[in-house]
Amino acid sequence: MKPLFIVLEGIDKAGKSTQAELIKTHLINQGNSAIISSEPTDGVIGKLIREAMQSQSIAIKNQAKFDEQMAYLFAADRHYHLYNDIDGVYKLIQQDNSHVIATRYYFSSLAYNCNNQEEFDFVYGLNKRFPNPDLVIYIDVSLEVALSRLQNAAYKEVYETEAKLKKVRANYHKIFHNYQGAMLKLDGQNTIESIHQQIITYLEKNFI
């Protein structure tokens, strides 16, 4: 299997991190190199994003302007994620011959930072030069399930509200309805083992 750039998407608590770890373990057990490299990154901009998401430390009260600021930051961090010379996605794939598994990519910016067509066009413009992954896995869960899982979270980020997640889920459905790249859509309310097996079956069918 050639080194792949695999992206997992979905609203908060859809199960992306769990499945990313299972994919990584499976690929390693098959004799491959595999790394999880998610967004925001651990770089300077990524750390700023994490701080802003946890405390809304950016001094902008207007939600639309806050989303716009976050879209700029995520685009800059995404460029670093792909192209930095230490652990950038393409360095890992091309030089280290490693599969790269990411939870979140530019689809998240389109889902979380857009509330209307004008904002969608703006965020799309910031991200249009970023390449599609080899595979995007969209894990869909209902709003009720996500909110139930969030009740047990150690802390909540600024976007983890019922109103925001409802809008984000609707945005994801629009984005992936028109997406032309390789995509696997899964029901995140199935068991962890069932979801994992569907992913492995897809990988073996399409990339081996």
Rank of each mutant, 00 (worst) to 15 (best):
K2V: 03
L8Q: 09
D12N: 04
A14W: 02
A14N: 05
G15H: 04
S17G: 13
T18M: 07
E21A: 11
L22C: 02
Q30P: 00
G31A: 12
N32D: 14
S33E: 03
I35K: 11
I36E: 01
S37F: 12
S38Y: 06
E39H: 01
P40S: 06
G43F: 05
V44L: 14
I45R: 06
I45D: 06
K47D: 10
E51N: 15
M53V: 15
Q54V: 06
S55H: 14
Q56D: 15
N62I: 08
F66K: 08
D67S: 13
A75N: 01
L82I: 08
L82Y: 07
Y83H: 07
D87M: 07
I93Y: 06
I93W: 07
I93Q: 10
Q94I: 08
Q95H: 14
D96L: 10
H99C: 00
V100R: 03
V100P: 11
I101H: 00
A102C: 13
A102N: 02
Y106H: 04
S109M: 09
N113Y: 13
E119M: 14
F122C: 12
Y124I: 01
G125F: 09
R129L: 14
L135D: 06
L135G: 03
L135F: 02
I137E: 06
Y138A: 00
I139Q: 04
S142G: 13
V145F: 05
A146L: 00
A146S: 15
L147Y: 12
Q151L: 05
Y155S: 15
K156I: 12
K156N: 09
E162F: 00
K167G: 02
R169E: 12
A170I: 11
F176V: 09
H177A: 14
Y179F: 15
A182M: 07
A182G: 04
L186V: 13
D187Y: 14
G188T: 10
N190G: 13
I192L: 14
I195S: 14
I200R: 04
E204S: 02
